[in-house]
């Protein structure tokens, strides 16, 4: 079969986020030319000022929905995109800024901004899939660049991405890392956290922070009982689940279960 010469149009969009996930794409130094060769980069402000109008074959979306303009913009992008892939904790669950969901939004705005009346934010920060249909979600804070390349590669080759939804523990065991929780007594979120980082923290003698959000079949209630035995108090438990993926369902529920304030 002859391969088509027309390159798919790729757009990279930013919502409420730190740019770290987009940077992961630019960080693919060795593969960057291959990416540019495989796609027509139609919109990617962090990489180039050149912009091509839609429709796009694939839109990669970073960031959460945190103000009214975001909602309008993501609907327009969805309408212009054949495939929409969200990348990172912000886009998949609302990000660290979703901590506002558990506090008093009005009070935060008054405390932070000199002119609160200029601010048109939403009281919650939410993931993209809460607003439009998403074709694929890639987790991580930030995403892992090899996984990002894998997702793009799978898209180009029309196959399933090799991104497993199991726990970080699998990555510890595949890599031969010694379990820091069992062997050192270090609290670790790995058993309830989605793989993808290659067990970066346990391999460096630290517990997992949960950057990739909840794993499939996560049972944080059981893990919390064990972490309490290791010495964590209620407040520490609530804070453990309330970081980059605070608004992802299993973490949100478990954080709330230990929030006694």
């Amino acid at each position: 079969m002859q391969r088509t010469k027309v390159k798919p149009k790729l757009a990279v969009w930013k919502f409420s986020s730190c740019d770290g996930c987009q940077l992961s794409l630019l960080d693919c130094e060795d593969e960057l030319l291959a990416v540019a060769g495989a796609f027509e980069i139609a919109y990617f402000l962090e990489a180039t000022r050149a912009q091509t109008r839609g429709p796009y074959d694939v839109s990669v979306v970073e960031g959460s929905i945190a103000n009214l303009h975001d909602i309008e913009r993501i609907k327009k992008i969805r309408a212009e995109s054949k495939a929409l892939i969200t990348i990172g904790a912000c886009a998949t669950s609302g990000g660290i800024q979703a901590l506002r969901n558990f506090g008093n939004y009005e009070a935060f705005v008054r405390a932070v901004y000199a002119r609160p009346d200029f601010i048109e934010g939403l009281a919650t920060s939410t993931g993209i899939a809460d607003h439009v249909k998403v074709d694929y979600e890639l987790r991580g804070c930030p995403v892992d660049k090899r996984q990002l390349l894998e997702v793009l590669s799978a898209f180009l080759n029309k196959r399933a991405p090799r991104v497993a939804p199991h726990s970080v523990c699998v990555e510890c065991k595949l890599g031969g890392a010694i379990c820091v929780m069992v062997a050192h007594g270090t609290p670790c979120l790995g058993p309830v956290t989605h793989a993808g980082c290659g067990a970066l923290c346990p391999r460096h003698d630290r517990g997992c922070y949960g950057c990739f959000g909840p794993a499939e079949g996560a049972n944080p209630a059981s893990l919390s009982r064990h972490l309490a035995q290791l010495g964590l108090g209620e407040r520490e438990l609530a804070e453990l689940y309330r970081s980059f993926n605070a608004n992802a369902e299993p973490f949100r529920k478990e954080g709330a279960a230990h929030d006694n304030e």
Binding site: A34, A38, A154, C169, S222
Partner: peptide, 30 residues
């Protein structure tokens, strides 16, 4: 099940567990 984390550690440290999966890998160009 109320205690089990579904973390897989028991099976991966077990010296007799033999299950595996296969995955296809391509480069960008295929």
């Amino acid at each position: 099940a109320s205690r089990c984390l579904n973390c897989t550690n028991c099976t991966l440290v077990c010296p007799t567990c033999f299950c595996s999966t296969v995955e296809d890998v391509t480069d960008l160009g295929g």
